[in-house]
Nucleic acid binder design. Sequence first.
DNA 1: GTAACTGCAAATCCTTTGCTATGGA
DNA 2: TCCATAGCAAAGGATTTGCAGTTAC
Lengths: 128, 128
Amino acid sequence: MKYSKQREIILQIVQNSMDHPTADKIYEKARMELPNISLGTVYRNLNQLAEAGTIRKISTGTSDRFDKTLKDHCHFHCTKCEKIIDLPVVYVAQLKEDLMRKEGHKIEYEEILFTGICKECLEERKED
Amino acid sequence: MKYSKQREIILQIVQNSMDHPTADKIYEKARMELPNISLGTVYRNLNQLAEAGTIRKISTGTSDRFDKTLKDHCHFHCTKCEKIIDLPVVYVAQLKEDLMRKEGHKIEYEEILFTGICKECLEERKED
DNA sequence: GTAACTGCAAATCCTTTGCTATGGA
DNA sequence: TCCATAGCAAAGGATTTGCAGTTAC
């Protein structure tokens, strides 16, 4: 892969994001550094980086999100505040183990997404 | 919800499918019974049925799939033969339990998708 | 020099929506 | 009758692609 300033910035944005941004959010941020960057370039680079395994695509059903971490594949999506929380990897280890040992499949990729109301929103709701 | 022949057939198709079809595949099948049915109607009904909890939408990242079972939320997607296998619910129970008890979130929906090579494809590969 | 890259815009794909007509309760 | 639903077609949104110019190596 040949170097490009655009790809470097896109990668930086994903790596510095805590909030699993959409392609569009990444585009917005990238334009602050490179005002002429195009949305097509953002998509092309996100796909390249995801294919290379440097970043990761998460499908929530409503939109695609991008994630820096390759190790945290367990997410919780709060439908109230719309945030996506990384969940401890340790919780998923046993599940994965069972699927490989007991079912005999080879797992190359896991996408675990729980949806509901996060702890913080639940606490706010109590105050209502 | 008012009865309609279209919805009945769409529901039947999803319930009789073992392969978690896309909206388009469901449309194709529905046209065999009702040649004039429109794709819009298929989408509308699939969304209604999913919202009502009768069927379920699964996002694989490449496309949305529909699923009849409300209890089996754990899927394995084989990238070789492209099939989606339901996985035993029991495996996910502990994971869910941990997330609710230890993290304090309220889980309303879970989407668990493992991707890789299924047992059958692994066995075929050995014979190559 | 050349292959990979960019920006731009058009194309594509999937899904939703607006409209008028129809059909179930 | 009346409201939900249908079919059709157009709109919508997200993503991809074609092209001509540019840049890294």
